Simulated assay, not measured.
Amino acid sequence: MTSHIGTVARKDFADAGRSKLLWILIGLLVVIAGVGYVAIWATVEDVAGAEVLGFLGFPLQVVLPVAALIVGYMAVVGERRSGSIKLLLGLPPNRSDVVFGKLLGRTAVVVVAVALAFLVALVLSLALFGTVPLVDWLAFGALTVLFGITFVGMAVGVSASVSSRGRSMAIVVGIYMVFVALWELLTAGSYYLLYDEGPPLEPETWYLLLDQFNPIFAYTNLASSVVEGNIFPFQFQYGLESIEAYQLTPAERYAGSGDAPFFLQEWFGLVVLVFWLVVPVAIGYYRFQRAEL
């Protein structure tokens, strides 16, 4: 059977290019990069381009998930809501083509936005600081693209799973709130219920594994390993974890003898990001295949 994923993706990306959404997203990320570099250049002395690159980590982890969720949450359900899904499926594309074509098209939107933001950072690094940390720039840019795609995958998966715009919006807002506002309550709170105390600096290994399944944590841990300085995760704190704990990686908090197990190493963050990309899309695909349209 011939796949029409590319056809759906090209149409989806073209539609996004004619909307304000893509340009708002691009503009926001470019402004973050531009204003940040100029502000640091104007206020901080004796700073290298490699050090400034890490500055992007904080605003990107805040803005990019929101932008990616907004880009993807109407991808499939929007077609169902307007009734155009029946017309689309009456043409050569089938349901698989729709889900994965939409995923590819919305992914392209986020990739373009991130690429332009990092291009601005590259130009400003050379112009203002005289150096270009090319290896760090490429690695950090690739991680940021994967981070953005991860949240696109979540949103498209949700969009394919439900039949109304309201449900899709509520679920993606809930996802963001869990990762940013409720994660400590869910993880450290569970630890407290089991042991009558919050997680110490060296907690049980199962807790470290569970805690790093937050994709924002995975991104900041990975990013901190490829740029100069540390990038700390943006998360609401309720006092169940110490400030010092947030400044350490899972491997550094491991209490066992010898090296930390593989699932606490920094590279495991890549597995976490891929997990949050693949699983929601697979669930959405499964539900969409069985939905009555």
Score class of each variant (00 low, 15 high):
Met1Lys: 12
Met1Cys: 04
His4Ala: 02
Ile5Asn: 04
Gly6Arg: 10
Ala9Leu: 05
Ala14Leu: 13
Lys20Gln: 09
Leu21Asp: 00
Leu22Pro: 01
Leu22Lys: 04
Trp23Ile: 13
Leu28His: 01
Val30Trp: 07
Val30Lys: 00
Ala33Met: 09
Gly36Pro: 06
Val38Glu: 03
Val38Trp: 06
Ala42Glu: 04
Ala50Arg: 11
Ala50Lys: 10
Val52Gly: 03
Phe55Glu: 00
Gly57Lys: 13
Leu60Val: 06
Gln61Thr: 08
Gln61Lys: 07
Val63Thr: 10
Leu64Gly: 03
Pro65Thr: 13
Pro65Glu: 13
Ala68Phe: 00
Tyr73Lys: 05
Met74Ser: 06
Ala75Ser: 15
Val76Phe: 03
Gly78Glu: 07
Arg81Cys: 03
Gly83Leu: 04
Leu87Met: 12
Leu91Tyr: 10
Asn94Tyr: 01
Arg95Ile: 08
Val98Lys: 01
Val99Pro: 09
Lys102Thr: 02
Val109Asp: 02
Val114Ser: 01
Leu116Ala: 05
Phe118Lys: 08
Phe118Gly: 00
Leu119Pro: 00
Val120Trp: 06
Val123Asp: 06
Leu124Tyr: 05
Leu126Ser: 11
Leu126Cys: 00
Phe129Ile: 08
Gly130Ala: 07
Gly130Arg: 03
Asp136Ser: 15
Gly148Lys: 12
Ile149Trp: 03
Ile149Met: 12
Thr150Arg: 12
Val152Gly: 00
Met154Ile: 15
Ala155Lys: 08
Ala155Gly: 05
Val156Asn: 01
Val158Glu: 04
Ala160Tyr: 03
Ser164Phe: 13
Arg167Gly: 03
Arg167Ser: 10
Ala170Ile: 03
Ala170Val: 13
Met177Thr: 15
Phe179Trp: 15
Val180Glu: 02
Val180Phe: 13
Ala181Ile: 13
Trp183Met: 11
Leu186His: 07
Ser190Thr: 15
Tyr191Cys: 04
Tyr192Ser: 13
Tyr195Pro: 04
Asp196Trp: 12
Asp196Met: 12
Gly198His: 11
Glu202Leu: 10
Trp206Tyr: 15
Tyr207Leu: 14
Tyr207Glu: 11
Leu209Asp: 08
Leu209Thr: 07
Phe213Ala: 08
Pro215Ala: 04
Ile216Lys: 11
Phe217Cys: 03
Asn221Ser: 07
Ala223Gly: 07
Ser225Met: 08
Val227Glu: 02
Gly229Thr: 07
Asn230Arg: 13
Pro233Ile: 06
Gln235Ala: 14
Gln235Met: 14
Phe236Val: 15
Glu241Val: 10
Ser242Arg: 14
Glu244Pro: 02
Tyr246Asn: 06
Leu248Pro: 04
Leu248Arg: 12
Thr249Val: 09
Thr249Asp: 01
Arg253Leu: 08
Gly256Arg: 12
Ser257His: 11
Glu266Tyr: 06
Phe268His: 06
Gly269Thr: 08
Gly269Lys: 01
Val271Arg: 04
Val272Met: 09
Val272Arg: 09
Val274Met: 12
Phe275Tyr: 11
Leu277Gly: 02
Val279Met: 11
Ala282Gln: 03
Ile283Pro: 14
Ile283Leu: 14
Tyr286Glu: 13
Arg287Val: 05
Arg287Gln: 13
Ala291Ser: 15
Ala291Pro: 15
